[in-house]
Amino acid sequence: MTGIVKWFNADKGFGFITPDDGSKDVFVHFSAIQNDGYKSLDEGQKVSFTIESGAKGPAAGNVTSL
């Protein structure tokens, strides 16, 4: 699925993605970002991701920028 990064705190390594389908915002951890180098996201960035079952509920996985 796709969405827009609502916010991401690079110091803490997590944030939230707002899915394009209008569903509830999804937690994203830096370890789910699939790019080389520094793993961070920018507010407003368009991303593709999967929904994984995290310890505290749904979380984004396999996050790639579009």
Score class of each variant (00 low, 15 high):
Y38M: 11
G22I: 03
N9A: 09
F16Q: 03
G3D: 00
V28S: 01
F8A: 02
S48L: 12
K12G: 05
E43T: 15
A32R: 07
S65W: 13
G54W: 11
Q34F: 09
I17P: 00
K12A: 09
D21C: 09
G61W: 12
V26Y: 05
F49H: 01
V63S: 01
V47G: 00
F16T: 03
A32I: 04
E52F: 14
G13K: 04
F49Y: 10
G37C: 13
V63T: 02
G15F: 02
D11L: 15
G15E: 00
F49V: 01
V26Q: 02
D36C: 15
S48F: 14
S48K: 12
G54D: 11
F16W: 10
K12C: 10
T64L: 14
K39F: 09
F49K: 00
N35Q: 14
G61A: 15
D42R: 15
F14Y: 14
I33V: 09
I17M: 02
L66Y: 08
D36F: 12
M1T: 08
H29W: 05
F8M: 02
S48T: 11
I4M: 09
A10M: 11
G44Y: 05
H29N: 04
F14V: 06
A32P: 02
F27V: 03
F30M: 09
K56L: 12
G15D: 00
I33T: 03
F49Q: 00
K56R: 13
V28N: 00
S23H: 07
I33M: 05
K12L: 12
S48G: 08
K39N: 07
S40M: 12
L41D: 01
A32F: 04
S31V: 04
A10D: 07
T64A: 11
D36G: 12
V26C: 06
A59T: 14
F27C: 03
S40T: 14
V47T: 02
L66E: 07
F30P: 02
D25E: 10
L41M: 05
K6L: 06
F30G: 05
I17S: 00
Q45E: 12
D25F: 04
S40V: 13
F14L: 05
V47L: 03
A10Q: 12
G57P: 07
P58Y: 11
A55S: 12
P19G: 03
K12D: 04
D11W: 15
G61V: 15
Q45W: 09
K6W: 04
A59V: 14
F16H: 03
K46Y: 10
S65D: 10
S31N: 07
L41K: 01
M1E: 05
G61E: 10
G13V: 01
L66F: 09
F14M: 06
F14N: 02
I51Q: 05
Q34D: 09
F16A: 03
G54R: 09
S65H: 11
D11I: 14
S23N: 08
A55E: 12
E43D: 10
S31E: 05
S48R: 13
V5S: 01
H29T: 04
G15W: 01
K46G: 07
F49P: 00
A60R: 01
G13R: 05
G44M: 05
D21N: 11
T64S: 11
P58T: 12
L66D: 07
T50C: 09
G13H: 04
K24M: 11
F8H: 01
N35R: 11
G57K: 07
F49C: 01
K6F: 04
T2L: 10
D20Y: 08
K24G: 11
L41G: 01
F14W: 15
A10E: 07
A60E: 01
A10W: 11
D42M: 14
K12R: 13
G54C: 10
K24N: 12
G61F: 14
T64M: 13
A10F: 10
P19C: 07
G13P: 00
K6G: 03
K56S: 11
D42T: 15
D25W: 04
K39R: 11
T50A: 06
S23K: 07
D25M: 07
N35S: 14
F30H: 09
E52R: 11
